[in-house]
Simulated assay, not measured.
Amino acid sequence: MPEPTPSQSLPEQCASSRCRRAARSDALRRRRAAPGALLCASCKRALAADLAALPALHHESEQQLVLPARQQGPARATGHRPDAPPMSDAAIEARHDALVRLASWARLVLDETHPAEVPTDRSVPALARFLGQHADFLAAHPAAGPAADEIGRVATALRALVAPPRPELVTLGRCVEPGCDAEVSLPGRGGDDLVLRGPMCGAGHVLTPRQWLLMNRRHRTEQAKEPA
């Protein structure tokens, strides 16, 4: 097969650290950049998806600024006006980081493209929408890798803030796998985890419906043997 000429050179590898990490771990072969870009098609879609999700994520994260009552400590009985509720450092930091990083990338786009339409204000929703309109420019820019990585980290941090808490686990008994004595548990409120995987022990054994019935039968037998 003839070597490619300079005008027919192979496309560069994706500049996103997501592809680099996957290649280092052998989880995925590092992909080639999409035509006219420095990101692969998958990382380009991820960049656009993160920017599209940021306005809603930022709005939802506002509800996490004030710590829940159970994390505020005991209330103090004083004759003075009640103290302002304590704020979540994690929420403040994630929201501030989102604003700073999006503003930086928006400034790059403004300085290099001089678009007719500019962000309506210096807010995360406005900056994210503006950058979403120029996602192709970012994907083709020499700084495409850092742009995709930073915006991805911003979206991940906000998603972590607004994600629903993991359900508490209910212990069902001891595993019925031969030689295993780990506890079996399932989400206290049921939900998708139970539907998708069923009860699982601490050692990683997922019980089949038959094993679950066997465990319940054994548990009832042990209860019946206990002295009244």
Rank of each mutant, 00 (worst) to 15 (best):
W105V: 03
P146E: 14
A163K: 04
R197G: 04
E168N: 10
A157N: 10
C175N: 05
P164Y: 05
G132Q: 08
R129P: 00
A106I: 07
L172Q: 09
V118Y: 08
G145I: 00
A160G: 07
L158C: 09
A160E: 11
T171Q: 11
V162Q: 12
F137C: 04
G152F: 07
A103W: 05
L169D: 10
L138N: 08
P178N: 12
F137M: 05
A128N: 06
L110N: 11
A106E: 11
E168M: 10
A135P: 01
P178A: 15
H141E: 02
P178R: 14
R197Q: 07
L161H: 01
A157H: 08
F130H: 01
T156M: 09
A182Y: 07
H141L: 05
L158K: 08
A128K: 07
A143K: 10
R107F: 04
L186K: 05
E177T: 11
R107Y: 02
R129V: 06
A103G: 12
A147T: 12
P125Y: 01
A143W: 07
G191W: 03
R107C: 06
D111N: 14
A116Y: 07
D192Q: 12
V124M: 10
L110Y: 09
L108M: 15
A182Q: 14
G173W: 09
G145L: 01
G173R: 12
P165N: 05
C180V: 03
R129E: 08
R129L: 11
V176D: 00
L102Q: 03
G188E: 15
L194H: 02
L131H: 00
A144M: 08
S104T: 13
A155I: 01
A139G: 02
D111T: 13
G132T: 13
L161W: 01
D192Y: 10
A135F: 03
A103S: 15
A116S: 13
V176W: 00
G191H: 02
C175Y: 03
A143S: 14
G190S: 00
V195E: 12
H114C: 11
Q133M: 11
E150M: 12
P146H: 14
L161F: 02
L131P: 00
P146C: 13
S104N: 09
L196R: 10
A160R: 11
L172E: 09
G188W: 07
T113L: 15
E177S: 08
P146R: 13
L169N: 07
L108C: 14
R153Y: 09
P187L: 06
A157V: 06
Q133F: 06
R107E: 13
L131F: 00
L194I: 01
V109T: 13
A139K: 02
P165M: 10
G132Y: 08
L172N: 04
G152C: 11
D149P: 04
T156S: 12
V170N: 09
G173A: 12
H134Y: 02
L194S: 01
G191A: 03
L127R: 00
A147L: 09
S185L: 05
H141S: 01
Q133S: 14
D181K: 02
P119C: 04
A128Q: 07
V184P: 02
C175K: 04
G188R: 14
L196E: 09
V170T: 15
P115G: 12
V162W: 09
G173Q: 13
D181W: 04
A148S: 15
L131T: 02
L108S: 13
L161M: 02
P178G: 10
V124L: 11
A148W: 04
L158P: 06
